[in-house]
Amino acid sequence: MSFQDIFNGLQQGLHDMTWLEAIAVTFAVLSVLFQKKNNILVYPTGIISTGIYTYLLSREHFKLYADATLNAYYLVMSVYGWLYWAKRGPEQPVVRITLSNTRELITATLIALLGWAVFYLLLVNFSDSNVPVMDAFVSATACGGMWLLAKRKLENWIWLNVSNFVAVPLLFYKHLYLTAFLTIFLFIVAVFGYISWKKTVHEQEILHT
């Protein structure tokens, strides 16, 4: 696919873009910005975005069922996080950002591999997805990354960006051009997130030596 093909496709995609996709992208960007500021609004904005994407990606036109399921998972976690943040008491010690040990990396790998197999089998046997391998891989690697993120491990950014990297051409293929460019934006944010977290880990090591 040439640059001209992508440009022409983007023009057509923007012309055909639904208002639902535009709203989902807008609130996804807002959610990322609020996350950077550690603001509780990361959750309501994320709920709106993931809720729309859960519906949008599961529609017959796109058939990205594993990605839709992943967004449903994000939706549930956003509700949980919002409730937890809203009712928590005084400031609690922040969990330190650390490097993953061998066991944690193996666990994340197993989550991704098993998730890939499970998603693939479900898509092949219980859906009409025409991209089961790619759709399953994007969701499975994101699940591995989310597990590491919950542990505040530096390597979560790598796993999430593997998912983002594969998701971009898949989204272009499905003519979700605005969402594809959103994913490119998230990829860039993750690169800077990795650099920032790595710097924090280095500073912590200096303090504890």
Rank of each mutant, 00 (worst) to 15 (best):
Y53E: 02
V76M: 00
S100I: 11
T141I: 12
A142D: 10
I6R: 03
T45K: 01
A180R: 09
T107A: 12
I206G: 04
F34C: 07
A140N: 05
L57E: 03
D5K: 15
K87H: 14
L70D: 05
G9M: 14
T26D: 06
L123E: 00
Y43F: 04
I40F: 02
Y43V: 00
L113Q: 00
V29G: 05
L105S: 11
Q92L: 01
Q35M: 08
V189I: 08
D128Y: 05
N38H: 10
A117V: 09
V95W: 08
N161V: 04
L154T: 10
H175M: 12
L123V: 00
S78K: 02
G51N: 03
L176W: 13
P132T: 08
V32E: 05
S139T: 09
N38V: 07
F192E: 10
S129K: 00
I6D: 04
Y73A: 11
P93G: 10
L33K: 07
L113C: 06
V94W: 01
S163M: 05
I6C: 06
S129M: 05
M146G: 02
F181I: 14
N161P: 07
L178K: 06
A150S: 15
Y173G: 13
A117K: 10
A180I: 06
C143T: 11
S58P: 04
T183G: 07
L64H: 01
N8I: 08
L83F: 09
Q4E: 09
R152S: 14
L207Q: 10
T141M: 15
M77Y: 02
F165K: 01
A24V: 06
Q204C: 13
K87V: 11
A167P: 12
Y73F: 09
G115V: 06
L70F: 08
L14W: 10
E203R: 15
G193Y: 02
V162H: 05
A180E: 07
L148K: 05
Y43M: 01
A68E: 01
I106C: 07
F126N: 12
T98N: 15
F181Y: 14
Y80H: 04
I188S: 08
K87D: 09
W147T: 11
Y120R: 03
T107M: 12
F187C: 03
G89V: 01
L105E: 10
T183V: 11
T26M: 12
V29Y: 02
M17V: 06
W197L: 13
A28N: 10
W159F: 14
C143K: 03
T183D: 04
I48V: 13
T107P: 09
F137L: 09
V168I: 14
N8W: 09
N161T: 02
V124M: 06
T45D: 03
T209Y: 13
L207A: 12
F137T: 07
I206C: 07
I97M: 15
I97N: 13
A136T: 06
W197K: 10
F192S: 08
W147M: 12
P44W: 01
F181D: 12
V42P: 00
T107R: 09
K174V: 11
S49H: 03
S129G: 08
Q35F: 01
V29L: 09
S127W: 03
M146K: 03
K63I: 11
E205F: 13
V32N: 10
I206N: 13
I52R: 11
